[in-house]
Amino acid sequence: MINTSRSHPKRSPDPCAEHAPLLRTCGLRCGFGTGWVATGTPLPDLAIQRGNLIIVSGDNGAGKTTLLRTLAGELPPLHGEIRRKPGLDVLHLPQQAALPRSGPFSVADLVSLAGNPAHPWLPAASDVRVDRLSGGQRQRLWLALALSCRCDLLLLDEPTRYLDAEGRNRFHASLQPDTPFCQAQAVVMVSHDDACHAATLPGVQRIRLDNGCAATPRNALQPTP
């Protein structure tokens, strides 16, 4: 296992070894090295396994994006440790992924670069330039490309921004890991929408960050059987 520990002592034996989680956190605190701590108290320990869908919600500045970046390995944890399955393939779709970028890039170009995915959310007109799509269409395109990528863990940061109400509902209703709609084995999604449809699905785990603290009870985050 890859150990990215900074200050937390090693734990043994591994209580979840039989479940072979994709990623585990122990006593994790996230933030930046400048003294500002996004999640002031340790988050409840996570054990992300195949088929898991975890929704992270909270107010602006609560540290949702910071948590995602830490799970992705882009930021080191301030405290605690993250254990990843060896060779874990993480795909992180940040908030600004679908910002318009001018240039002669068609939908077909991006689809071919992403490995020729077939996804119901891909626009029908593949010869349209990406910078001519609306914000919502572009977000759907990026989501379709990311969702159709095979990876172990997909991290989505506010994926439903720019989507209309119908698009949001369809997205939440269809988001199930390891399915044709979402080929990632597990998904962690940041959402402002506490009442989103995905949150009501069975087996979905939720973390709510309030004022830099994880408000979710620890026992709510046990791996789905």
Partner: peptide, 16 residues
Amino acid sequence: HRAWTREQLLTWQRPG
């Protein structure tokens, strides 16, 4: 060209 363009245009991150 193809691999580099993919990294430039598909603006998601694959830290691994």
